[in-house]
Amino acid sequence: MAMLPLPLISPVLAAGDSTVSGQGLLKLDVGLMIWTWVSFFVVLYVLSRYAYKPMLALVRQREKRIQETLAKAEDARLRAEAVAAERERVLKHAQEEAQKVVDAAREAAEAQGRRIVDEARQDASRIVKHAEEELDRQRRNAMAELGETVADLAVEAASRILHHELDRSAHRALIDSVIEELEQKSG
């Protein structure tokens, strides 16, 4: 006998003693029905008691844990968002404060700059004025010295030219009066 390709066939060949017709397929076997009920109820009892309950309990526990984890994750997300919002707020506040400080510093610097310029300008004008006064005073002194020198020279020159001894104090007064007139005319 040739070997068959599938192991399924070998028991069929071994069971060659069966000669039941096809009509027997629809015949109810009470013994098999009873075995079916017995087997089913035993499986039902064992699985209900020892399998379904613990497995579904673990599923429920897992579902609960997943829900808790999701709730925690949601809570953490909300807190992170709150922290981010707070950070944004603080950052914005700090930027505003920094801007205020910068603005104040700029304003202060500008004011100080203006003040320094004003002061410098005032100092400069004061210095110029002082210089002008000093210059004027120097000029007057110079004019006075020049007048005296001119007077002396004039007197000396006149006395030498005229070879005449004059009253020195009278001439002096005359010349001073002339110089005063000149000064008044000049300025």
């Binding site: 069929v12 060949l13 039941v20 009470v30 098999l32 009873i34 075995w35 087997s39």
Partner: peptide, 29 residues
């Protein structure tokens, strides 16, 4: 070499009887 109908017939592997009811252990059981 394979008879499908024969393969589907029940063959008693162990004959049992309880209160006149045959509770044979067949290949289905």
């Amino acid at each position: 070499l394979v008879d499908p109908i024969d393969h589907l017939q029940l063959h008693s592997l162990l004959q049992l009887s309880v209160a006149g009811v045959r509770l044979d252990i067949t290949q289905a059981v």
